[in-house]
Structures are given as C-alpha cells and as structure tokens.
Simulated scan of single mutants.
Amino acid sequence: MLRMSKLADYGTVIMTAMARDPDAVHSASSIATATGVARPTVSKVLKVLTRGGVVESLRGTNGGYLLPRPPGRITLAEVIAAVDGPIGMTECSTTPGLCIQEAACAVRANWQKINRLIYEALQQVTLADMAGPALRAVDISAIRARSIPSRRAGAMPASRSTDGGHA
C-alpha cells in the first residue's frame, strides 16, 4: 500500500485547521482542541512544519504559530515534503544512485512518470481547497440504473464467470 506517514497526515490536518482562520496566531492547545489530535503530537508536528518553512513560530506571551502565506498559496505537496522529505514512490524517483539496479531497471522511467503525476496532483491542491466545504456525496443510483447499450440485457461479459473468476 502506498501512503504518506502518519505525521504528514497530521500535518495536513493541523495546517487545514490553521487555514480556516489564516490570519490568527494559533497555539498548539487550540489546534489540538480543533483537530482532536493530542497536544504533544500537535507540538511535534508544528516544530517539523516550522523547520520545513510552511509554518512560522512566534515566541513570547502572544506567541504561537501562523501560516507564512495565504492558504491558497500553500500546497499539499509542500506540507507533505516538509514532514516526510521529497515525495517519491520509489527511492530512485527522488534520489538517483540509491538502487544498485537503477542503470538497467526496465520500470524506473515509468515510476518516475507516476511520481511526477502524483506530485503535480498534490501541487494542485492547496490548504484553501482543504479548508473549504467537504465534497458532497454523489448519488450513484442514477448511474447504476442506466443500462449500457452495447450489452444485451441479462448477458454477462465473456471475461466474467458466475463463480467470480475462480476455477
């Protein structure tokens, strides 16, 4: 399974909460309350995000954390990279020379293409998008009710068997 780290996931949750009130200075406690993430975890992630440059830290009695840019100018790719490092599906997608099979690898170019596509997709989603209203559920009953004209009613495709494809 391909997935980002739990800390990167928390990073997106924390920064999305901050993006809902982008001009405020946020405390770790207020973010923990807003997100339901434990305060020690919020503090840890905020430190990592600050080191990664996607969050600013203010010291003092009125200190806390704030976004360095408007939410529409901070992408998920930046947030994930700040926590996990360069986004890469495979080691050779981000750092050449780590794999001994790299020079003769028949699939390396395809993994690099997949990596670029995922990175570009993450670059297109901003914190403003994440902080916006959730996507509505789609009513798929109309799609299911539609028949596909090229198939005869009741006929199963030739590639399927009635036992689920098991011999």
Rank of each mutant, 00 (worst) to 15 (best):
A134W: 11
E102F: 05
R73E: 15
S93H: 01
S150W: 14
M156E: 11
I140S: 13
S43I: 02
R144F: 12
T41K: 03
E91P: 12
A109P: 01
L127K: 08
A145W: 08
T50V: 07
G64T: 09
L67K: 00
A145C: 00
V55L: 07
P133F: 11
A103T: 09
Y65C: 03
S147W: 13
R116K: 14
M89C: 03
A134V: 15
A77Q: 02
I118P: 04
A82W: 05
A103V: 04
A153V: 08
L58I: 09
L98T: 01
Q101E: 15
Q124C: 13
I80C: 08
L66Y: 12
P133E: 13
P71D: 04
A134I: 14
S147H: 12
Q123V: 05
A81W: 05
A153Q: 14
R69I: 01
Q101D: 15
R108I: 10
R39I: 01
R152H: 12
A134F: 14
A121L: 11
S159H: 14
I87K: 04
P71T: 05
E102N: 03
N115F: 00
R39N: 08
K113Q: 14
T41L: 02
P157F: 01
V125D: 08
A128S: 10
R39F: 05
N115A: 02
K113N: 13
T90I: 10
S43Y: 06
R51N: 10
G97R: 06
L46D: 04
